[in-house]
Write a protein that binds this DNA or RNA. Structure first.
Length: 287
DNA sequence: AATGTCAACTCGGAGT
DNA sequence: ACTCCGAGTTGACATT
């Protein structure tokens, strides 16, 4: 008995959670609450450490798909972005933030990023957006600074995320205006937020499946034990059932009762095995 | 110093 | 062709 035995039973847990489509529609359903939507396809097996999640880890991707660094290095030789007005609404931001356009311009292939800047409205938003200058107090130019959203901004974003985990362009614009951020920043925040939600949900699923696995292992153990007991019981009762067939009735020499035929092809018959029935010492053990 | 967090990035796939 | 999004990654900053 033990885990090895349970493994021998080939107990396998596989949950696809097909309720959530693998390829979501254009506008995926809102994952409003972590209520076991089971989107990730987790597999469980009893061999080895039971739980394997199909979500790949960072380390699995040794190769960077893109030339992000190359892009950065390339662009750092390009013209510097214009310095924006200092953060007059500075209290809104916990720390100095770079010009978002400068951040965006780290890569040269900025087709996607630039689409956010096309409309005059967005340019206006950008002008008011969180930023100081491209040059920090050390004089380092165009260094990538990390923007930290304020509590108020985070709270509002969270609130909005609770209502809808994806934004349409209008919602994005409105939220960006309200938060004094670029639409692109709002978009990124929502993307990252969805990713975090999914990761968290995956962890929850994993824990759930681990518990399932433990429960099933215990159940399997219990059933194996029960089976053993039944087998033992059957063996003990074997002489009684050994010769029950009406076709070849035999008479117990001791009490003159009849027994089965012992035909192995009869699924209900138990083959008589002399080793369990000592005619000499116990001729009527079945009785 | 090591580790965690998270905004911002690239890339590729899918929808229109 | 364009747009959006998910997956994976990077790097600045915070925390331990």
């Amino acid at each position: 008995m033990g885990l090895d035995d349970t493994c021998n039973t080939c107990l396998v847990l596989g949950l696809g959670f097909s309720s959530t489509p693998e390829t979501p529609p254009k506008k995926p359903p809102v994952m409003a609450a972590p209520a076991m939507s089971f989107e990730p396809f987790l597999t469980l097996g009893l061999s080895g450490e039971s739980c394997r999640v199909t979500v790949t880890k960072k380390a699995d991707h040794a190769v960077n798909k893109g030339g992000y660094l190359c892009h950065r290095l390339h662009h750092e030789h390009e013209e510097l972005p214009t310095s924006a007005a200092a953060a007059t609404a500075g209290d809104l931001y916990r720390q100095a933030s770079p010009d978002p356009s400068a951040v965006s311009s780290f890569s040269s292939g900025r087709i996607k990023r630039e689409r956010d800047l096309l409309s005059s409205e967005e340019v206006e938003v950008e002008k008011n957006s969180c930023r100081v200058s491209d040059e920090d107090e050390d004089g380092a130019i165009n260094a990538r600074k990390k923007l930290r959203l304020t509590k108020e901004q985070s709270a509002l974003l969270e609130e909005s995320f609770k209502q809808h985990s994806t934004l349409n362009p209008n919602q994005k614009q409105a939220l960006a205006r309200e938060l004094n951020l670029k639409p692109r920043q709002v978009e990124v925040w929502f993307q990252n937020r969805r990713a975090r939600t999914k990761l968290k949900q995956t962890e929850v699923d994993c824990e759930f499946l681990k518990r399932c696995c433990e429960t099933l292992t215990n159940e399997n153990r219990r059933l194996q034990k029960e089976l053993q007991e039944l087998k033992a019981l059957k063996m003990a009762a074997q002489p009684f059932y050994a010769n029950r067939s009406a076709a070849t009735l035999t008479v117990c020499p001791s009490c003159e009762r009849t027994g089965g035929d012992g035909n192995p092809k009869n699924p209900f018959s138990i083959p008589s095995k002399p080793r369990f029935y000592n005619h000499v010492t116990n001729p009527s053990a079945a009785c």
